[in-house]
Design a protein around this nucleic acid. Structure first.
Lengths: 212, 212
DNA sequence: TAGATTGTTAATCGATTAACAATC
DNA sequence: TAGATTGTTAATCGATTAACAATC
């Protein structure tokens, strides 16, 4: 066991630090204080120092932080140097959008195969991937030691697919199905729920209109 | 001004209540206590009662909550009965995936037009929509009183497009570009950042592996 | 009525912010 | 050295949980 329980609030700020530091690097800025970073990222300087100190003392009194070094450190903290064998399940529009998404390679997620349950899709090629039959997922996962599955399937059936995946050793799921998957505690689920995001926008728009 | 400042934490739980109540309705369950709901949704009964009481006393002592009535109330709180004129900007894979996404109609977001900057895309038809030239967005927004824009374009240029949209009166943006848009305080931005979600998954996987 | 469960106040917990000694 | 800024402790703020009187 490595880390003293880092809270989710902190974890979800890390990608933001990483992104803003990359922007600074691109602008050839190689030194930044928590105060300056605070002004561009919108967190308090105090919070920034607290957050970073969860993982180590990356700064230097009187100087601030070295942008390149800090960026690299946060990349390591995020585990972007690790490689994970990944499969994509569901080759509909959203699945295809994700397949075209360059972010995977940067994050070390190597998509090995794409599956779909629709007979009309099986055998088609998208982006170098021949779409495989969903019935063969378990076999593939076992033979290829797949770590992570990206789930782009409808709500119905998502839990069953997740159960199957967990049964053959998948340890992480990036879930786009609008459902809260139930998995054992050693399996990680990170969900992107478009409906919840849209409903939140709806709420905020209504609240905005009420304030007039 | 209507509501005494509801915290974001509460707001982001509302869609989840709405979804679980819909599930209960579909199973013909028409009465539920905070304790029972707690067991299926995973929040404490106390939190559920606190959350709901921000908006009114929807329950009845000794009885619990009427599922159908509560579902309807939360729908109203979320503003799902309101209609918003919407445009989709960026007709790439993700844009197309969203266009096929049925959720919009339920949430009252009526997509009136689809835009893209790529000359090869302009004029093509997807799902009854002829893709229009991004150069004509401002004109369209003004003429049609568009309320909300869905932004499915790359990071570069996203801020400029947002500026344009705000300039012609757009009041809400559902943002899929991996950037923190800067907008006036009366404009709502709800972002879905896939990279941040993926990086969070990466962190949690690494943390999980460290614990072995 | 007795039992159940809410609405709401009070207590606790955790996260954010402020402050400042340490130190580069 | 003097000035700047971190790392870290203490204070504050806000969100969650517990408790219970009100009441259906």
């Amino acid at each position: 066991m490595a880390n003293k329980n880092i809270s989710m609030a902190v974890i979800r700020r890390l990608p933001k630090y990483y992104r803003y530091l990359a922007d600074l690097l691109a602008r050839d800025i190689n030194r930044i204080s928590s105060k300056e970073l605070s002004e561009i990222i919108g967190f308090t300087a105090s919070q920034i120092r607290q957050d970073l100190n969860n993982f180590g003392g990356f700064g230097q009194q009187g100087y601030g932080y070295n942008v390149e070094a800090l960026h690299k450190e946060i990349g390591k903290i995020l585990g972007l140097d690790k490689k994970y064998k990944t499969v994509l399940i569901g080759a509909g529009n959203l699945g295809q959008a994700l397949l075209n998404y360059a972010g995977f390679r940067n994050a070390g997620f190597d998509i090995g195969a794409v599956f779909d349950a629709n007979p009309k899709m099986i055998g088609l090629k998208i982006r170098d991937y021949e779409i495989l039959d969903s019935d063969d997922i378990e076999k593939y996962v076992l033979e290829n030691n797949v770590d992570i599955a990206i789930l782009c399937i409808p709500k119905n059936g998502a839990q069953e697919v997740a159960d199957k995946l967990v049964g053959v050793g998948v340890k992480g799921i990036w879930n786009f199905a609008p459902i809260d998957l139930e998995v054992p505690s050693d399996v990680i689920v990170e969900s992107v729920n478009l409906t919840e995001s849209l409903f939140t926008l709806s709420y905020l728009m209504k609240e905005r209109d009420d304030e007039e």
